[in-house]
Design a protein around this nucleic acid. Structure first.
Lengths: 205, 205
DNA sequence: CTAATATATGAACAAGTGTTCTTTTGTCTA
DNA sequence: TAGACAAAAGAACACTTGTTCATATATTAG
């Protein structure tokens, strides 16, 4: 008898509401996605939504939980191990970042984040913490190890991390924009790999 | 007798509407800034707005014109001249970018752009063209000259330009976010200068 | 000063918003 | 089969939205 945290009950409708809301919020934003649009897409009346959620905000908060829960998991040990070899770490890290960029669910979450970023103070704080600071931490630790092993030139690991992550973010934003308009991402598809190459050539000793 | 393009008429109120709208749109977004909020801030009734503009969208379009009209002017000759000296070009370009980031008017426009980016297809297209492509063009031309003069390592100038502009954008986004919450930008204030240093050291021959 | 014109008001509109009822329907349990 | 409970519908609410219109008030021109 498996015990899931989100209650074992028969919540088929609730799940559908969340699924639909994710799509609509990430397309239209919080204001643009009205409860009637959500309900209609689910196939129920607005009033029925309130059997599953207190109000609109509760739906949004539930959806927004997904924004920073990306399974971006490089174990601490794995970081140390890969970093000791230099370039393979950058490759692994970047490919994970690339996967997140193209993954449907994470793409929606990223769009939602961008749409609501300047409308939601809490989201801004989390962006700085979860998106920026956390990445800087992992990367700077890795670059620090590379410096100790004389694989790259010595300098401030935090600065190197900043320089590295900023380009990843920009590529992700651009790809997300293009895909939102169903534009081909061909012209930018290998930008992640190019970044790894360029950066490694720039810092390697 | 100076002839301004925006008509010489006595349009004090119209100007105030645009000024107020700029602030509200860039804070609350298109949907969030209602005509009543705008009118009330101007000091008139909603109905009076329609003596100056056809509708809300016309106000927005007038405001949005300012997004991509930044006086980011490095003359073609100046680019060539500075690029031939290498690092000074990066310094000049970056300092102009930094000024735009901290300039009140351009800051509002940048925020407006970010807020509406995923809600407005036309804005996305302009972002790609005016914000991205144009900068890539100027930068890649400069890097090309530097390569010809053997100031930096030879590689794809467009790639180098991409790597350079992406970090500038990320810094700008972060600073704009912090200032939106009235947070101190001390921790990131010299990031632009650090970027110039890091990048130049990375590419110089 | 008077007439014409531009700009303001205040009320109203139709449509949309989030939310709350009461009532009906369905589903599982005793 | 009967009763309990969860989930649906449908109508209504108070409020906000963009926009319009008739009317009043300034401002300008002859």
């Amino acid at each position: 008898m498996p015990i899931t945290t989100t209650s074992t009950k028969n919540n088929k409708t609730k799940d559908k509401i969340l699924k639909v809301s994710t799509v609509l919020f990430s397309k239209l934003g919080y204001k643009g996605a009205s409860v009637r649009k959500i309900a209609s897409e689910v196939g129920i009346r607005e009033s029925a939504l309130y059997n599953h959620f207190e109000n609109k905000e509760e739906i949004f908060l539930e959806v927004a939980k997904g924004i920073f829960s990306s399974p971006f998991s490089l174990e601490h040990e794995e970081v140390a191990e890969l970093a000791a070899r230099g370039k393979p770490f950058l490759q692994k890290f970047t490919m994970q970042y690339k996967m997140l960029t193209f993954d449907k669910g994470n793409e929606d979450m990223f769009r939602l984040l961008m749409i609501e970023l300047f409308q939601n103070k809490e989201l801004r704080a989390q962006f700085m913490q979860e998106f920026h600071a956390k990445n800087i931490k992992v990367l700077s630790e890795a670059f620090f190890i590379m410096m100790q092993n004389s694989l790259i030139h010595s300098s401030d690991p935090m600065l190197v991390a900043y320089e590295y992550i900023s380009t990843l973010f920009y590529i992700r934003l651009q790809i997300t924009l293009m895909r939102f308009d169903s534009n081909s991402t061909d012209s930018i598809s290998t930008q992640f790999e190019k970044h790894v190459e360029f950066f490694w050539e720039s810092i390697k000793v």
